[in-house]
Amino acid sequence: MFETRSLRARLFLQFGVTIAAVPFLIPIYTMVSRSFAGGGWGNYAAVIGVPGFLQFFLNSAIVAGGSIILIYLATMTAAFGFSKLRVWRKEVLFWMMMVALTLPEIVLIAPLYATAVQLGLLGTFWSVILPIAALQIPFTVLITRGYVDGIPDTLFEAARLDGAGTFRVFWSILVPLSRSMAVALIVLVLINAWNSYLLPKVFLSSDDMGVVTLLPDFFRRQYNDDIPKILAAAVVTAIPTIVTYVALQKHFERGMAAGAIR
């Protein structure tokens, strides 16, 4: 983008970017360095020693996995329907869905709380997965529809002329062709579900249902807020999302580019 033919210009740019990146490192540096205060590595041992430590990760994985499956299925079928099938008042329905884009999860808390009590969903993973899905689906449908729109109609028509049913068309054309979109969806939903804090905090109150974002809370007590261990817990919980992002970075950017910025 920038022309940097001379060595000086290159050095200048490199220097500028480095300086600009420093503020991004300060909180990270603080978090890691202060997580060793007091007990040193012992703080990390204490975090790993939290009863049911693995359960926290497993629960987050359940929430994330459930959200991904639900969102993926609902999004793909809906995007297919909106983009390639005949639906009565399609655009009205689509807009109704898009209005939900503006809804913050905090607004859901009070009504969902009362509803979950009535349905007996409180303290089940559904009480977290369903709202996450509800909040994500409008977004994911919107991008995925854009993506599916970009697949030529002729492909679908040809298949149909060959006698394939709608489900077959969906399964053998749409699903394989939208793989890069799927990766982007999965990364987005995974990170979002993994990071969800408020919903699990309010709805998953039972002992063995904590998720990773609640792990630092384990060291936040009436009589001892153990800050080094809170920070160590924060580092431990942050690692999976960072690794996921780094590992899927290329796919993620490709999916974004394909689905969002055609």
Binding site: T77, R86, L93, A100, L108, A134, I137
Partner: peptide, 22 residues
């Protein structure tokens, strides 16, 4: 084109259902 309402419904029910209800 085949009808697609059934394809839209799952996503529609989860999101619009839950959110409008809320």
């Amino acid at each position: 084109l085949p009808g697609g309402l059934a394809w839209i419904l799952p996503g529609f029910i989860i999101s619009v259902g839950l959110i409008y209800y809320s």
